[in-house]
Design a protein around this nucleic acid. Structure first.
Lengths: 127, 127
DNA sequence: GATTGACCTGGAGCGCACTCCAGGAGTGAG
DNA sequence: CTCACTCCTGGAGTGCGCTCCAGGTCAATC
Protein backbone atom coordinates (compact mmCIF):
# COMPACT_ATOMS: atom_id res chain seq x y z
CA UNK A 1 0.00 0.00 0.00
CA UNK A 2 1.55 3.25 -1.15
CA UNK A 3 0.97 6.81 -0.05
CA UNK A 4 0.21 8.62 3.17
CA UNK A 5 -2.99 8.53 5.19
CA UNK A 6 -4.86 11.79 5.47
CA UNK A 7 -3.60 12.44 8.99
CA UNK A 8 0.01 11.78 7.99
CA UNK A 9 -0.38 14.02 4.98
CA UNK A 10 -1.97 16.70 7.12
CA UNK A 11 0.87 16.54 9.64
CA UNK A 12 3.47 16.75 6.93
CA UNK A 13 1.77 19.69 5.24
CA UNK A 14 0.92 21.58 8.40
CA UNK A 15 -2.80 21.39 7.66
CA UNK A 16 -5.70 19.48 9.21
CA UNK A 17 -7.40 16.44 7.75
CA UNK A 18 -10.59 18.49 7.53
CA UNK A 19 -8.83 21.11 5.46
CA UNK A 20 -7.48 18.48 3.08
CA UNK A 21 -10.96 17.05 2.53
CA UNK A 22 -12.31 20.54 2.10
CA UNK A 23 -9.70 21.42 -0.54
CA UNK A 24 -10.50 18.27 -2.44
CA UNK A 25 -14.26 18.82 -2.31
CA UNK A 26 -13.77 22.43 -3.37
CA UNK A 27 -11.83 21.47 -6.52
CA UNK A 28 -8.52 22.87 -5.42
CA UNK A 29 -6.65 19.68 -6.23
CA UNK A 30 -5.53 18.35 -9.58
CA UNK A 31 -7.29 15.04 -9.10
CA UNK A 32 -9.36 13.09 -6.64
CA UNK A 33 -6.86 11.68 -4.18
CA UNK A 34 -6.46 7.91 -4.74
CA UNK A 35 -8.09 5.56 -2.27
CA UNK A 36 -7.08 2.37 -0.53
CA UNK A 37 -9.23 -0.72 -0.94
CA UNK A 38 -11.20 0.36 2.12
CA UNK A 39 -11.91 3.77 0.62
CA UNK A 40 -9.39 5.74 2.69
CA UNK A 41 -7.37 8.45 0.94
CA UNK A 42 -3.74 7.71 0.14
CA UNK A 43 -1.76 10.84 -0.67
CA UNK A 44 1.04 10.34 -3.17
CA UNK A 45 4.00 12.59 -3.78
CA UNK A 46 2.28 14.39 -6.67
CA UNK A 47 -0.65 15.24 -4.40
CA UNK A 48 1.61 16.46 -1.65
CA UNK A 49 3.67 18.63 -4.01
CA UNK A 50 0.60 20.29 -5.43
CA UNK A 51 -0.90 20.92 -2.02
CA UNK A 52 2.40 22.40 -0.93
CA UNK A 53 2.23 24.83 -3.83
CA UNK A 54 -1.34 25.89 -3.20
CA UNK A 55 -0.50 26.26 0.49
CA UNK A 56 2.08 28.82 -0.55
CA UNK A 57 -0.48 30.59 -2.69
CA UNK A 58 -2.90 30.60 0.24
CA UNK A 59 -0.18 31.73 2.65
CA UNK A 60 0.45 34.73 0.42
CA UNK A 61 -3.22 35.58 0.51
CA UNK A 62 -4.59 34.14 -2.72
CA UNK A 63 -8.33 33.56 -2.30
CA UNK A 64 -9.66 30.02 -2.57
CA UNK A 65 -11.54 30.92 -5.73
CA UNK A 66 -8.33 31.93 -7.50
CA UNK A 67 -6.56 28.79 -6.38
CA UNK A 68 -9.47 26.90 -7.90
CA UNK A 69 -9.09 28.77 -11.19
CA UNK A 70 -5.39 28.02 -11.22
CA UNK A 71 -6.01 24.34 -10.49
CA UNK A 72 -8.54 24.22 -13.34
CA UNK A 73 -5.95 25.64 -15.73
CA UNK A 74 -3.33 23.11 -14.71
CA UNK A 75 -5.90 20.31 -14.91
CA UNK A 76 -6.82 21.42 -18.42
CA UNK A 77 -3.33 20.42 -19.53
CA UNK A 78 -0.81 22.04 -21.85
CA UNK A 79 -1.69 25.07 -23.90
CA UNK A 80 -2.83 27.61 -21.33
CA UNK A 81 0.55 28.49 -19.85
CA UNK A 82 0.00 32.12 -20.76
CA UNK A 83 -3.09 32.24 -18.59
CA UNK A 84 -1.38 30.47 -15.73
CA UNK A 85 1.48 32.92 -15.89
CA UNK A 86 -0.90 35.88 -15.98
CA UNK A 87 -2.72 34.58 -12.92
CA UNK A 88 0.49 34.10 -10.97
CA UNK A 89 1.88 37.46 -12.04
CA UNK A 90 -1.30 39.23 -11.02
CA UNK A 91 -1.08 37.51 -7.67
CA UNK A 92 2.55 38.48 -7.29
CA UNK A 93 1.77 42.11 -8.01
CA UNK A 94 -1.00 42.05 -5.44
CA UNK A 95 1.28 40.51 -2.82
CA UNK A 96 3.94 43.13 -3.43
CA UNK A 97 1.34 45.86 -3.14
CA UNK A 98 0.16 44.46 0.18
CA UNK A 99 3.69 44.02 1.49
CA UNK A 100 4.41 47.66 0.73
CA UNK A 101 1.20 48.75 2.39
CA UNK A 102 1.83 46.74 5.52
CA UNK A 103 5.38 48.03 5.70
CA UNK A 104 4.27 51.63 5.47
CA UNK A 105 1.65 51.18 8.18
CA UNK A 106 4.16 49.32 10.29
CA UNK A 107 6.51 52.29 10.07
CA UNK A 108 3.84 54.42 11.75
CA UNK A 109 3.36 51.81 14.46
CA UNK A 110 7.12 51.72 14.96
CA UNK A 111 7.04 55.45 15.47
CA UNK A 112 4.41 55.02 18.16
CA UNK A 113 6.48 52.33 19.81
CA UNK A 114 9.46 54.68 19.83
CA UNK A 115 7.29 57.26 21.51
CA UNK A 116 6.33 54.92 24.36
CA UNK A 117 9.90 53.69 24.73
CA UNK A 118 10.96 57.29 25.10
CA UNK A 119 8.46 58.28 27.76
CA UNK A 120 9.17 55.08 29.68
CA UNK A 121 12.88 55.83 29.53
CA UNK A 122 12.41 59.31 30.92
CA UNK A 123 9.77 58.31 33.52
CA UNK A 124 10.14 54.59 34.12
CA UNK A 125 7.20 52.87 35.83
CA UNK A 126 6.21 55.54 38.34
CA UNK A 127 5.22 54.11 41.70
CA UNK B 1 -21.06 73.59 14.12
CA UNK B 2 -17.66 71.94 14.35
CA UNK B 3 -16.44 68.57 13.14
CA UNK B 4 -17.10 66.32 10.16
CA UNK B 5 -20.23 64.35 9.39
CA UNK B 6 -19.89 60.60 9.40
CA UNK B 7 -19.77 60.40 5.61
CA UNK B 8 -17.11 63.09 5.38
CA UNK B 9 -15.09 61.37 8.07
CA UNK B 10 -15.50 58.05 6.29
CA UNK B 11 -14.34 59.53 3.00
CA UNK B 12 -11.34 61.13 4.62
CA UNK B 13 -10.38 57.94 6.43
CA UNK B 14 -11.03 55.56 3.56
CA UNK B 15 -13.66 53.68 5.54
CA UNK B 16 -17.44 53.44 5.29
CA UNK B 17 -19.94 55.13 7.60
CA UNK B 18 -21.10 51.67 8.65
CA UNK B 19 -17.59 50.75 9.69
CA UNK B 20 -17.24 53.93 11.74
CA UNK B 21 -20.47 53.17 13.60
CA UNK B 22 -19.36 49.61 14.07
CA UNK B 23 -16.01 50.67 15.54
CA UNK B 24 -17.75 52.97 17.94
CA UNK B 25 -20.29 50.38 19.04
CA UNK B 26 -17.52 47.84 19.45
CA UNK B 27 -15.51 50.05 21.84
CA UNK B 28 -12.61 50.66 19.53
CA UNK B 29 -12.74 54.42 20.01
CA UNK B 30 -11.49 56.51 22.90
CA UNK B 31 -14.84 58.15 23.45
CA UNK B 32 -18.34 58.31 22.07
CA UNK B 33 -18.12 60.61 19.09
CA UNK B 34 -19.77 63.96 19.90
CA UNK B 35 -23.16 64.69 18.41
CA UNK B 36 -24.80 67.70 16.81
CA UNK B 37 -28.04 69.06 18.26
CA UNK B 38 -29.95 66.71 15.97
CA UNK B 39 -28.04 63.68 17.22
CA UNK B 40 -25.72 63.28 14.24
CA UNK B 41 -22.10 62.39 14.85
CA UNK B 42 -19.51 65.14 14.44
CA UNK B 43 -15.99 63.80 14.18
CA UNK B 44 -13.33 66.08 15.60
CA UNK B 45 -9.62 65.98 14.91
CA UNK B 46 -8.90 63.86 17.97
CA UNK B 47 -11.38 61.24 16.77
CA UNK B 48 -9.94 61.22 13.28
CA UNK B 49 -6.37 60.87 14.54
CA UNK B 50 -7.25 57.94 16.71
CA UNK B 51 -9.19 56.19 13.98
CA UNK B 52 -6.25 56.76 11.67
CA UNK B 53 -4.01 54.98 14.14
CA UNK B 54 -6.29 52.02 14.65
CA UNK B 55 -6.73 51.81 10.89
CA UNK B 56 -2.98 51.28 10.69
CA UNK B 57 -3.18 48.62 13.35
CA UNK B 58 -6.00 46.92 11.45
CA UNK B 59 -4.14 47.26 8.15
CA UNK B 60 -1.21 45.43 9.66
CA UNK B 61 -3.51 42.63 10.73
CA UNK B 62 -4.24 43.39 14.37
CA UNK B 63 -7.53 41.70 15.32
CA UNK B 64 -10.43 43.89 16.44
CA UNK B 65 -10.24 42.44 19.93
CA UNK B 66 -6.64 43.59 20.36
CA UNK B 67 -7.47 47.05 19.08
CA UNK B 68 -10.21 47.10 21.71
CA UNK B 69 -7.71 46.15 24.42
CA UNK B 70 -5.36 48.87 23.28
CA UNK B 71 -8.16 51.44 23.23
CA UNK B 72 -9.13 50.40 26.76
CA UNK B 73 -5.56 50.97 27.94
CA UNK B 74 -5.39 54.42 26.39
CA UNK B 75 -8.82 55.27 27.76
CA UNK B 76 -7.67 54.22 31.24
CA UNK B 77 -5.23 57.13 31.17
CA UNK B 78 -1.63 57.50 32.30
CA UNK B 79 0.14 54.73 34.15
CA UNK B 80 -0.18 51.75 31.86
CA UNK B 81 2.32 52.79 29.22
CA UNK B 82 4.30 49.61 29.86
CA UNK B 83 1.28 47.53 28.89
CA UNK B 84 0.59 49.62 25.82
CA UNK B 85 4.17 49.28 24.72
CA UNK B 86 4.09 45.52 25.26
CA UNK B 87 0.94 45.20 23.20
CA UNK B 88 2.39 47.21 20.33
CA UNK B 89 5.70 45.37 20.47
CA UNK B 90 3.98 42.00 20.42
CA UNK B 91 2.01 43.16 17.41
CA UNK B 92 5.14 44.41 15.73
CA UNK B 93 6.88 41.07 16.23
CA UNK B 94 3.88 39.26 14.78
CA UNK B 95 3.80 41.53 11.75
CA UNK B 96 7.50 40.97 11.11
CA UNK B 97 7.00 37.22 11.41
CA UNK B 98 4.19 37.33 8.89
CA UNK B 99 6.13 39.55 6.50
CA UNK B 100 8.99 37.08 6.55
CA UNK B 101 6.63 34.18 6.00
CA UNK B 102 4.88 35.83 3.08
CA UNK B 103 8.21 36.76 1.55
CA UNK B 104 9.50 33.23 1.76
CA UNK B 105 6.35 31.79 0.18
CA UNK B 106 6.45 34.50 -2.45
CA UNK B 107 9.96 33.43 -3.39
CA UNK B 108 8.60 29.99 -4.26
CA UNK B 109 5.83 31.54 -6.33
CA UNK B 110 8.43 33.68 -8.09
CA UNK B 111 10.31 30.54 -8.95
CA UNK B 112 7.17 29.08 -10.49
CA UNK B 113 6.62 32.29 -12.46
CA UNK B 114 10.18 32.06 -13.77
CA UNK B 115 9.45 28.53 -14.86
CA UNK B 116 6.42 29.57 -16.92
CA UNK B 117 8.26 32.54 -18.38
CA UNK B 118 10.97 30.17 -19.47
CA UNK B 119 8.75 27.64 -21.20
CA UNK B 120 6.82 30.44 -22.88
CA UNK B 121 10.07 31.95 -24.12
CA UNK B 122 11.22 28.69 -25.65
CA UNK B 123 7.77 27.71 -27.04
CA UNK B 124 5.70 30.88 -27.31
CA UNK B 125 1.94 30.42 -27.68
CA UNK B 126 1.87 27.42 -30.01
CA UNK B 127 -0.83 27.67 -32.67
C1' DG C 1 -16.53 -11.63 18.33
C1' DA C 2 -16.29 -7.33 20.79
C1' DT C 3 -13.76 -3.22 21.13
C1' DT C 4 -10.83 0.44 19.53
C1' DG C 5 -9.28 3.78 16.43
C1' DA C 6 -8.73 5.96 12.01
C1' DC C 7 -11.28 7.00 8.33
C1' DC C 8 -15.57 8.03 5.51
C1' DT C 9 -19.76 11.35 4.08
C1' DG C 10 -23.03 15.22 4.02
C1' DG C 11 -24.10 18.95 6.19
C1' DA C 12 -24.32 22.22 9.98
C1' DG C 13 -21.80 25.65 12.65
C1' DC C 14 -18.32 29.12 13.68
C1' DG C 15 -15.34 33.43 14.11
C1' DC C 16 -14.19 37.41 11.93
C1' DA C 17 -15.11 41.87 10.18
C1' DC C 18 -17.86 44.04 8.29
C1' DT C 19 -22.30 45.29 5.36
C1' DC C 20 -26.99 45.92 4.68
C1' DC C 21 -31.69 46.88 5.96
C1' DA C 22 -36.13 48.66 7.90
C1' DG C 23 -38.25 52.14 10.07
C1' DG C 24 -37.89 56.72 11.69
C1' DA C 25 -36.34 61.65 12.42
C1' DG C 26 -34.12 66.24 11.43
C1' DT C 27 -32.75 69.85 7.74
C1' DG C 28 -32.66 72.56 3.68
C1' DA C 29 -34.48 73.70 -1.01
C1' DG C 30 -38.29 74.88 -3.86
C1' DC D 1 -45.86 71.95 2.93
C1' DT D 2 -43.54 68.55 0.45
C1' DC D 3 -39.61 66.46 -1.19
C1' DA D 4 -35.01 64.76 -1.09
C1' DC D 5 -31.22 63.79 1.57
C1' DT D 6 -28.45 62.32 5.33
C1' DC D 7 -28.40 60.67 9.40
C1' DC D 8 -30.06 57.63 13.40
C1' DT D 9 -30.85 52.70 15.75
C1' DG D 10 -31.09 47.71 16.46
C1' DG D 11 -30.55 43.80 14.39
C1' DA D 12 -30.17 40.63 10.53
C1' DG D 13 -27.26 39.02 6.73
C1' DT D 14 -22.88 38.09 4.14
C1' DG D 15 -18.45 36.03 2.49
C1' DC D 16 -14.56 33.68 3.70
C1' DG D 17 -12.21 29.71 5.19
C1' DC D 18 -12.34 26.56 7.58
C1' DT D 19 -14.01 23.32 11.71
C1' DC D 20 -17.00 20.27 13.87
C1' DC D 21 -20.44 16.67 14.17
C1' DA D 22 -23.42 12.52 13.64
C1' DG D 23 -23.79 8.30 11.98
C1' DG D 24 -21.46 4.73 9.67
C1' DT D 25 -17.55 1.45 7.70
C1' DC D 26 -13.41 -1.16 8.08
C1' DA D 27 -9.09 -3.35 9.96
C1' DA D 28 -6.54 -4.70 13.65
C1' DT D 29 -6.18 -6.07 18.48
C1' DC D 30 -7.45 -8.52 22.72
Amino acid sequence: MTGLTISDAAARLGLTADTLRYYEKDDLLLRAVPRSSSGHRRYEQADLSWIELITRLRATGMPIRDVRRYAALVRAGDGNETERLALLQAHRAEVLRQLAEVQSHLAAVDYKIGFYEEILRSAPVPA
